[in-house]
């Protein structure tokens, strides 16, 4: 099995606050890894380190063997590291079509062309296809800021997938979705091709556990547990750290079903 992402002793300090402490991870190609942890455990900071939005204080990150710790976020995006954010980050002033178009163009070598995008532009056509796959066909010309929250999350994931990423980083994709929208999200995540490796931060166990191959639990910046979804749900350490917060009985009942 090829290792898609390998982090060794990754540390990020903001002044005296150590947000991520000596985190080592190894994620195989095609694996779906869920990261759990309470608020402030360092999950999003870890994702930001992998995506290149911030640089680590120490430690190394390799992506398919290549050191990427020194690359800026747009370079990582071009080699196949794609992400969504906890808060919706769609480009609200642009139409849905232009959002997808830019997501496709951003990773192309001739992205700076000042030419008019002609009607035969293959990326425009592909952007329409992507919108159709996400069920956003009738909204392609609507500006993204006017979409409902659920639609914005869908669009964001479509944008993250547009550049054919090899590693997809999802930061709480179910946040703010209605109970009716959540199973749709789970189904969509399960339908993603196995060529895409995925790291998922998610509080909603109903979304996270069906998708997960392995689970990593973080607390105060450090990895405190790693195991299968079943091991995670039954680990006393994890229950006391994390699951206690949201009602242990609920979660155990959910995962056993």
């Amino acid at each position: 099995m090829t290792v898609a992402l390998q982090a060794v002793k990754l540390t990020k300090a903001f002044g005296a606050l150590v947000a991520v402490r000596d985190v080592s991870l190894e994620i195989d190609e095609g694996e779906r890894r869920v990261i759990l942890g309470t608020n402030g455990a360092g999950k999003t900071t870890l994702l930001n380190l992998i995506a290149g939005d911030i640089t680590s204080t120490s430690g190394t990150i390799r992506f398919f063997g290549e050191h990427i710790g020194g690359l800026s976020s747009y370079r990582r995006a071009r080699i196949g590291v794609s992400r969504t954010y906890q808060k919706s980050h769609v480009l609200s002033g642009l139409t849905v079509l232009d959002n997808l178009y830019l997501a496709l163009r951003g990773v192309q070598p001739n992205r700076f062309s000042v030419m008019w995008p002609g009607s035969n532009d293959i990326h425009k056509a592909r952007a329409r296809e992507l919108a159709a796959e996400m069920g956003l066909s009738i909204k392609v010309d609507v500006s993204a800021g006017e979409l409902s929250h659920g639609e914005q999350r869908q669009l964001e994931i479509a944008m993250a997938l547009a550049g054919s990423p090899r590693l997809l980083l999802l930061d709480e994709p179910a946040a703010g979705l209605s109970p009716a929208e959540r199973p749709l999200l789970t189904a969509m995540l399960l339908a993603l091709p196995r060529s895409v490796t995925m790291i998922l931060i998610e509080h909603d166990m109903d979304v996270a556990l069906p998708v997960a191959d392995r689970v990593t639990v973080m607390d105060e910046g450090a990895v405190v547990f790693e195991g299968s979804p079943q091991e995670t749900a039954s680990s006393p350490l994890v229950q006391s750290l994390y699951l206690g917060n949201i009602g242990r009985d609920d979660v155990v009942a959910d995962t056993s079903s």
Partner: peptide
């Protein structure tokens, strides 16, 4: 709109 997102798209 959003510089962070634009960078995440590879620009």
């Amino acid at each position: 709109d959003d510089r962070v997102m634009l960078s995440a798209l590879g620009v």
